[in-house]
């Protein structure tokens, strides 16, 4: 990490350069008007100081209105440029490309726990390859935190009870600060870490080293441990919808609406199952809130994602006809 004194932060992501360009534009506008007002005040104070000879004949009539309108419209125009430019870039920064590396981030007082797709875990550091878009799915176990990497010019609050996402594409290898930017209690300022951006080959090697159990496998053992299959895999008594291929599918709910079963929906259905019940089923599933932590929810979702849809596609609405689950041969 470059720790020398500097006046401008390092640019290490695709967004950084774009944000800086907008920042320089804003700096230009701000410096111009600050200088303008400062110089005008100094000039007037000197020229029209008490006792100095100067032309003090007052102008009257329309010029007064022209001035007022001019100095209302110029700021309006400039701020609209700032708004449009900033909004456009903000929108882009919130649209992750489809081929992102997805990584789960769990924030808690006062550490960052990172869970890579293949099960590799790390604390207060995040290894990523240079030149590849990375998307983080983040949740907090306690209070609000905020994931902030100055060199990437990105920041996103990490909330308890809800997933938020952020994506970036590093452009330079190196080590960069990771800060928690939302005040989160006693050791807030020690909730820091580093982002390690590596060459893809180096990164692949790092991923291979000493990997722990994959999240799918961990999720499966949780699935067994909590006996989810008793209901969800029961072909004779379908009290619960089967879960094969659930991820990404459109789900019809009791109230007639449909939604896509994404991570947020799966998480909610585990922790608060009666909130959005699938049409045709009764709200009989017990809640697992308080029994499993956010880390385990991540693992369960990873397992559910790994379940392939059954050969015979189920209709998109109504209680689907039950298929014999064949998830056993889907395990990695």
């Amino acid at each position: 990490m470059d720790t020398s004194f500097r006046l401008f932060p390092e640019q290490a992501s695709t967004a950084a350069e774009q944000v800086d360009r907008l920042y320089v534009f804003l700096l230009g506008v701000a410096s111009f008007f600050t200088l303008l007002i400062f110089l005008l005040i100094v000039y007037f104070v000197i020229k029209y100081r008490h006792g100095a000879r100067a032309d003090r004949s007052q102008v009257s009539g329309n010029r007064y209105w022209i001035l007022e309108i001019t100095w209302s419209l110029i700021p309006l125009g400039l701020t609209m440029i700032m708004f449009g430019w900033g909004a456009d870039l903000f929108f882009k920064v919130h649209q992750p490309p489809p081929d992102c590396i997805e990584i789960n981030v769990l924030a808690k007082q006062w550490m960052w726990k990172i869970q890579h797709a293949d099960g590799k875990q790390e604390i207060n550091s995040l290894h990523i390859p240079v030149g590849k878009p990375v998307k983080l799915r983040m949740i907090s176990q306690d209070v609000i935190h905020s994931f902030f990497v100055p060199s990437f010019r990105v920041k996103q609050d990490v909330l308890p009870g809800r997933y938020t996402t952020i994506w970036f594409q590093p452009t330079k290898t190196g080590r960069y600060h990771l800060f928690c930017a939302e005040y989160c209690g006693t050791s807030h300022s020690r909730m820091t870490g580093e982002i390690v951006v590596q060459q893809p080959a180096e990164y692949a090697q790092w991923l291979r080293g000493a990997s722990s159990e994959s999240p799918e496998a961990a999720g499966e053992s949780l699935y067994d441990q909590f006996r989810c299959g008793t209901c969800h895999n029961n072909p004779t008594n379908p009290r619960c919808p089967p879960l094969d291929g659930i991820f990404g599918r459109m789900v019809r709910l009791e109230d007639g609406s449909t939604l896509q079963a994404d991570e947020a929906y799966l998480r909610e259905s585990i922790l608060d199952p009666t909130a959005q019940v699938v049409a045709g089923y009764k709200p009989v599933m017990p809640t697992y809130k308080g029994q499993i932590g956010e880390e385990e929810v991540f693992q369960l979702i990873a397992y559910l994602k790994s379940l392939q849809p059954p050969q015979q596609r189920t209709p998109k609405s109504g209680p689907p006809p039950f298929e014999t689950p064949n998830d056993t041969d889907q395990q990695p």
Binding site: L22, A87, F90, P150, V154, K155
Partner: peptide, 13 residues
């Protein structure tokens, strides 16, 4: 204005 500009606020917030 820097803070009202969305993309810049992302960094300086």
């Amino acid at each position: 204005l820097f803070l009202a500009t969305l993309a810049v606020d992302l960094h300086v917030h």
